[in-house]
Design a protein around this nucleic acid. Structure first.
Lengths: 299, 299
DNA sequence: GTTTACCATGCGTAAAATTCATGGAGCAAT
DNA sequence: ATTGCTCCATGAATTTTACGCATGGTAAAC
C-alpha cells in the first residue's frame, strides 16, 4: 500500500473546500505559502496538477475532483471514530445502590469531580445488578457481592460491619440503653429479608425470641434515616454513618459489630480496564473507600 | 474538524495488523523505536491507550479495536482514489484513422515511447469519429476535420496536400510519364467518394474526361500500398510518403499538389488538458507532425 | 539462572515543515 | 495603457519534527 502524503491531503481537502490557498491557510493556521507547498507535494506525488490556478480563483482539475470526495469521506470516517473513542475516555457512568450512592459516594463525589474536572461523571442508581455489565448502562459499579463473574475485575473495598445506632433524641434524659434494653425501643430492620437483628443478638449471646417488634425498610439508607429521626434503633453499616456519628445525629450503642460474609466491591468489565477514566476512578475509590491499604493491582 | 495525527494513524494501522511494533517497523522501513513513538503520539492525542503491551505480544484495547476498521477503510478509500487518478496520468489512448496510424504515427511511435517509458501509450484505430469523445475510448485523437466542437481543444497539424506517386517499377525502362501520360497507367483512387484525380487534373489545367480507368480504395494507406506494389499511380498525402520517397519505394511524378480545404488536427477534451500525459503527447506530436512552427498554446 | 523477544526512551542528527519576504501573473477599474 | 489588487509561487532561513542508534527494562521461555 503506497499512500499519498497524508498531511498534504488534509491541506488539499481544506483548500478544495475554500477554493483558495490563502483561506485554507487561515483555517489551518498556516501561511499561504505552506499551503502552496503542501499542494505541490501532493501534485508531485501524483505527477499531475490537482488545481487550476487562475487569477480569478482556484478550481479543481478533473483529478482533483475525483480525489476530493474520497479524501473527505476518508477523513470524516476517521473523525467519527476518533470522536467516538475519545468520548469514551471523557465519560464515566458509576453505578451504586441507593444506599451506597447517598451514604458513600455522594458525600465524596465533588472531591473526585474537582480532581478531574474534564471528566463527565454520572451516578446511576439502578437497583438490581446486571452481573455482566451487558446492559452497558454503566461503566463501573459499587456492589456488595459474594461471587465473581469471569470477564469482570473486582476490587474489594471493605467488609460490611453492622453496629447498632440510634438518635440521641430517642432516649431524652434517660441513659443509653444496654444491649438488654434494646428491646424496649422499636428495632428498625434495614432489610426485609436478612435477619440482621437476630444475628446480631446471637453474636452478643442473647436470644430475644422471634417476635421482635420492628419496622423493616427497603434499604440500609432508609433505616439509617429513620433512626436519625428518632424512630428507633437500627443496625447500620459502619462506613455509612461516619458523618452522622461525627455530628451527633446518631450515637453508636455497642461495639459489637455484625460482620457479614459478603463485602463491598468495585467492579468493572475487563475491557474497560485500560480507560483512563476507569483507572482514575478506581484509584480514587480504593484510596477513599477501602479499609485496607491499596493492593498491587492485578489488572 | 480536529483530526488525529495522520502519519501516526498510518503506523497504528500497520502495527495493529502485525500485532507488533517491530514488524510494523520493518514493513514501514522504520525502526521499532520510531513506531513506538508514533503510537505514543496517537495515544497522547486520544488520552488513552490503544495497545496493551504484553511480553507475549501486542493486543488492541477496545478503543484500538474501534479505531482500527475506521482507519483501514479510510486509508483504503484514499488509496483507491489515488490509484484511479494516478493511473490516468500513466495511460494514454491515442486514436487515429488506419491511414494516419500506419503512415504517420506508427513510424514515430517508438521514439515517443522511448522518451516517456513510464507512460502506457496505446493506439486505437477505430474508424469513424466520436466528435465529443463521449465514448471515452480514447484520450486524444488525430483527425482530419473542418468544424470544431465546443469543449474540445484543437491543434492544427498540417493541411492535406496530395501529390501523384507511383512505384518506379511501374515504368521499367521507360521514362517517367508526364502529366498527360498518366492516363496510360491505372489511376488509383484513395477514396470511394472524393474525386481527387478530377480535382488534381483540373488544378493542372487538364480535363481527362469523366471515364478515368481506376481502382478505388477504402483508405489513403491502401492506395499508397497498392501504388508501391506497382499497381498504378495514386494521389498520396505528402506526409504519409516521406519514408517511401526516401528509400525509393515510390517516386513523386509531379510537384503539383492538391490542397484540400480540410486539415489534420490533434484533438482532445478540454478537461484532459491538465494531464501530463496529454501535454507530453501533444507537444511531441506538434513538433513532429506540424508543418508550422509551434504556436502559443491556447489551452 | 539465563536467554530471548519485546517495547520504551534519552540523545544527537537528519529531514521536513513553516515562515518571511518577495516576485509575478491575471483581472478590473481608471 | 496604467495602476492597483488579489492570488499563488518561490528562495532562503529557521523552527519543528521525525528518525535512528544504543541502551534499558520487563515478562515469558528455556
Amino acid at each position: 500500500m503506497k499512500l499519498p502524503p497524508l498531511n498534504a491531503l488534509r491541506v488539499f481537502l481544506v483548500a478544495a473546500e475554500h477554493h483558495s490557498f490563502t483561506k485554507a491557510g487561515e483555517t489551518l493556521h498556516l501561511t499561504q505559502g505552506a499551503v502552496s507547498r503542501h499542494i505541490q507535494t501532493l501534485e508531485a506525488h501524483y505527477g499531475l496538477p490537482l488545481f487550476v490556478r487562475q487569477a480569478r480563483g482556484l478550481t479543481l482539475t478533473p483529478e482533483g475532483v475525483a480525489l476530493f470526495p474520497a479524501v473527505r469521506d476518508a477523513f470524516s470516517r476517521i473523525e467519527a471514530a476518533s470522536e467516538a473513542i475519545s468520548r469514551r475516555s471523557r465519560e464515566l457512568r458509576v453505578k451504586a445502590s441507593p444506599s451506597i450512592a447517598s451514604r458513600w459516594v455522594l458525600p465524596r463525589f465533588t472531591q473526585f469531580r474537582n480532581r478531574y474536572p474534564d471528566l463527565m461523571v454520572s451516578l446511576v442508581t439502578v437497583t438490581g445488578f446486571d452481573p455482566n455489565f451487558k446492559s452497558r448502562e454503566y461503566d463501573i459499579s459499587f456492589q456488595a457481592c459474594e461471587t465473581q463473574e469471569p470477564g469482570l475485575i473486582y476490587h474489594r473495598l471493605r467488609g460490611a460491619r453492622f453496629v447498632p445506632v440510634a438518635s440521641p433524641a430517642l432516649f431524652k434524659d434517660k441513659p443509653r440503653p444496654t444491649m438488654e434494653q434494646f428491646l424496649d425501643y422499636p428495632l428498625l430492620h434495614p432489610s426485609h429479608e436478612d435477619q440482621f437483628w437476630s444475628q446480631w443478638f446471637a453474636l452478643s449471646g442473647m436470644n430475644p425470641g422471634s417476635s421482635i417488634e420492628a419496622y423493616a425498610f427497603d434499604t440500609l439508607d432508609l433505616a439509617i434515616t429513620a433512626a436519625s429521626r428518632g424512630m428507633g434503633i437500627t443496625l447500620a453499616e459502619e462506613s455509612m454513618i461516619a458523618d452522622d456519628l461525627a455530628n451527633g445525629t446518631l450515637v453508636q450503642l455497642s461495639d459489637v459489630a455484625l460482620v457479614t460474609s459478603w463485602a463491598y466491591y468495585l467492579i468493572y468489565p475487563q475491557e474497560l480496564a485500560t480507560l483512563p477514566s476507569v483507572i482514575a476512578f478506581r484509584d480514587w475509590a480504593l484510596s477513599e473507600f477501602s479499609d485496607t491499604p491499596p493492593l498491587q493491582d492485578t489488572l
